[in-house]
Nucleic acid binder design. Structure first.
Lengths: 155, 155
DNA sequence: CAATGATATTTGCAAATGCATGTAAATCTG
DNA sequence: CAGATTTACATGCATTTGCAAATATCATTG
């Protein structure tokens, strides 16, 4: 990891060989892909991410939810305000730690997510269109390794 | 591609097996990783992306730049206002089409990007830490295929 | 070539975002 | 166990965002 070596310039690599660029661009379009469906449900990206996360881990404290949803704490706090007002999630004081709040999804929240999920799956399938299953599995494995490389939390 | 089949539920797949989730989370942290360095240069994400793109293709029309930078037209328009005011880019009317504006990077803009680039490379290397070169190449190839699958533009 | 429609970019405005800070509760430390 | 730190969450405020509409130019068509 010594770095006397000269860095390649971006112009030489080319944008489309620089993985982070590709990932940003792909995710930009992926996320935009069901913005209409989200809007129809009154959801923004952070709100949708909350519902998606709660579909997997219900009842996390907010700070963990911020990690799952890749959202700023303050943004998340306000997203939760809205979701709670709309009756899609429920805040519940943690009995162990009265600073903490745990978030639970409601039936209405689950229903909202259920109507969004097929679009997410469809978009994901479209992403992998024409990519052999073997490559796809290797790709996901690499993603998991990457997440392990950079995450600052134990999950 | 018939779809009578029942969709797997997200809870069953698990967040960390759903590629888009992993990609969003990884890029969230990657992008946050040099937010400080950007801030020191007075750059936001869209502004940095403009400079990065111009390091590769100088003089694009704005609508193409919006594709490269994965940025809303209106957001880009204002990012360009700032960059131009700061002297990092230059707007120049397209001689063929007087509706269009072409964007060029200035020496100062190049210098700003050059001071950011090492951090981007370092963050990228960190992402791929411990991932064999072979896997890395396969990963990038898959990304390129994915981009081809979803892009709506010819580049 | 006038009229209609498409394209390129900017801008108005309401909403979302994020940083810094506030408040409250838990934890640590001497 | 009092005081100092840290942690959890919410909020004030300035900035950024993005949708929709405005403006200006180009392209097409009858």
């Amino acid at each position: 990891m010594s770095d006397d070596e000269t860095l390649p310039r971006l112009g030489e690599i080319g944008l489309t060989n620089f993985a982070p660029y590709l990932m940003n661009r792909i995710m930009g379009r992926y996320n935009a892909g069901f913005r209409d469906e989200m809007a129809a449900l009154g959801l923004t990206t952070p709100k949708a991410r909350v519902l998606a996360s709660l579909a997997v881990v219900d009842g996390p404290v907010i700070r963990d939810l911020a990690v799952y949803t890749v959202t700023e704490q303050s943004t998340l706090s306000r997203a939760l305000d809205q979701l709670a007002t709309e009756g899609l999630v429920r805040r519940e004081a943690d009995p162990q730690d009265s600073r903490a709040t745990r978030i639970f999804i409601t039936d209405a929240g689950r229903a909202a997510f259920d109507s969004l999920w097929p679009h997410m799956v469809e978009a994901e399938r479209n992403l992998f269109r024409g990519i052999p299953d073997k490559d796809r599995r290797a790709f996901v494995a690499t993603l998991q390794q990457m997440l392990a490389n950079i995450r600052k939390h134990e999950f």
